[in-house]
């Protein structure tokens, strides 16, 4: 067992527990975006920042990837953490304001404005779909391509993947796709296609584009001849 201190409270956790899990165990809320239960921590969005250490040595780390260490002192809501978190949320709003998930996070943190150049990306490169596809669907049909500005998600060579089983899992977990319709709120779902085994986007022809929550979307790209 490892004992660490979070916001002044001692907590003992198993080796291998992340700071995020320890804080959640104590009930301290830490917002997350790229993190998802059942998927390996990835540390892409930095929204889950916490401050560790004391005095001048204190630093910000992403709690979803940071393993609990004996004697570690963690603050989950210090001034510095809140400032960083606000900045990250503003940046997320700047890149993908249409995402319901990002909107909700922003509103929870009372952020109504962002100070950066407004973009409307389809993807925030959180990697949820990639991990979903590899770790839960055992397909590895989609992945990251390119780097820097040109980094994107999709299949190799942008052609329909032979290993995609069209489960729709990637779309289901995507925070940017859940823009217009998402089965995560079943009562608001339009057709329920994504909850069935029949993949939602395969039937896209019978819907108009308005119905589709994401364009371009991974599943559509896969479907394209």
């Amino acid at each position: 067992m490892i004992t660490l201190t979070i916001n002044g409270l001692d907590v003992s956790v198993e080796k291998g527990t992340t700071v995020l899990e320890a804080a959640q165990f104590l009930g301290f809320p830490i917002p997350t975006l790229c993190h998802m239960e059942g998927l390996t921590p990835y540390g892409a969005c930095r929204l889950c920042v916490v401050e560790i250490g004391e005095g001048p040595g204190a630093k910000l780390v992403s709690s979803c990837t940071y393993p609990a260490e004996p004697g570690l002192k963690v603050r989950t809501a210090s001034l510095r953490v809140m400032r960083a978190r606000k900045m990250i949320l503003e940046l997320l709003l700047a890149s993908c304001p249409q995402s319901k998930e990002i909107q909700d996070l922003a509103s929870k943190h009372e952020i109504t404005q962002q100070r950066f150049r407004q973009e409307y990306s389809d993807c925030i490169l959180c990697g949820r779909c990639v991990r979903m596809c590899e770790e839960q669907m055992m397909a590895k049909a989609i992945g990251f391509r390119g780097r820097g500005e040109k980094r994107s998600i999709g299949t190799p060579f942008d052609v329909p993947s032979e290993v995609c089983r069209q489960c729709g899992g990637c779309i289901y977990v995507c925070p940017a796709c859940s823009l217009r319709c998402t089965y995560t709120q079943p009562e608001k779902a339009i057709c329920g296609g994504c909850a069935n085994l029949s993949p939602p986007c395969l039937q896209k022809d019978s819907f108009d584009d308005m119905m589709c929550y994401m364009d371009p979307c991974v599943a559509c790209e896969i479907k394209k001849p």
Binding site: K140, A141, I142, G143, F144, R145, G146, P156, F157, V163
Partner: peptide, 22 residues
Amino acid sequence: ALRRMAAATGESLTDIYAVVTF
């Protein structure tokens, strides 16, 4: 060639493509 390489090495084409485009 990349598809063949994937088959011969057992690596996933997605990973190979990620490295190539990186």
